[in-house]
């Protein structure tokens, strides 16, 4: 690889891909360059160790998490990907790391909240829109859709543009929506109000999957 040298400042993203293959031979599936940007595919099991090494190793220093998102292709044969867009602010290098997942299988990856605090809302959004679970995230709630939203995960390709339900059904559900469901259990526990709620409110909360012990 050209550009490789002892000075960490001269490592390009392509060098990082080579270093990753050498260091994590069983975790790195493949890597390629597209539109001048390096993409590394890693296995679900090895992803967290790879990301931690990328953040902490002195030759890498990917200290800035630009984005976490998911991609599902129209081709049902292709895998659903969890995409991490990383940046090293000091070295001025970008890298994209992808975890391919079987779209029909369990969608679960390990949270990187322990590495970058910025992952908090990004992972919640990925869960909200794609249904990818982030193991270890302490507060994995829906973020853009409301709590108790039952129609599915809007950015999945199996989700029609106008939703699964008819307009009439959606309107009926919206009119029936109970405002108490928007309060998270955390908020209710701060107010210590849960046990003082009227019975019918508690029943509706239970319908949204929220019960305090």
């Amino acid at each position: 690889m050209s550009g490789a040298s002892a000075d960490p400042g001269l490592h390009t993203a392509a060098d990082t891909a080579v270093a990753l293959r050498a260091r994590f031979p069983e975790a790195v599936v493949r890597s390629h360059t597209v539109c001048g940007q390096v993409v590394v595919y890693v296995t679900n099991a090895g992803a967290h160790a790879v990301l931690e090494w990328l953040r902490d190793d002195v030759s890498q220093q990917f200290n800035y998490l630009t984005d976490i998102t998911c991609v599902e292709y129209r081709d049902p044969e292709r895998e659903l990907e969890v995409v991490y867009q990383l940046r090293s602010l000091d070295r001025k290098v970008d890298l994209r790391v992808k975890i391919p997942l079987n779209p029909d299988g369990p969608l679960e990856v390990r949270s990187v909240l322990d590495l970058w605090r910025g992952a908090d809302w990004l992972e919640r959004e990925a869960w909200d829109m794609f249904g990818v679970k982030f193991r270890g995230h302490p507060d994995l709630r829906r973020i853009l859709m409301w709590e108790g939203y039952a129609e599915g995960f809007p950015l999945r390709k199996s989700f029609p543009l106008r939703g699964h339900w008819s307009r009439a059904e959606q309107t009926r559900q919206a009119l029936e929506a109970n405002p108490e469901a928007y309060y998270s259990l955390e908020e209710l526990s701060i107010a210590e109000a849960y046990h003082e709620l009227p019975l019918d409110v508690r029943e509706r909360l239970a319908k949204a999957g929220k019960v305090l012990p």
């Binding site: 107010a191 210590e192 109000a193």
Partner: peptide
């Protein structure tokens, strides 16, 4: 007076 969900309980 009845306790309301998110007031001072």
């Amino acid at each position: 007076v009845r306790n309301v969900p998110l007031g001072v309980s």
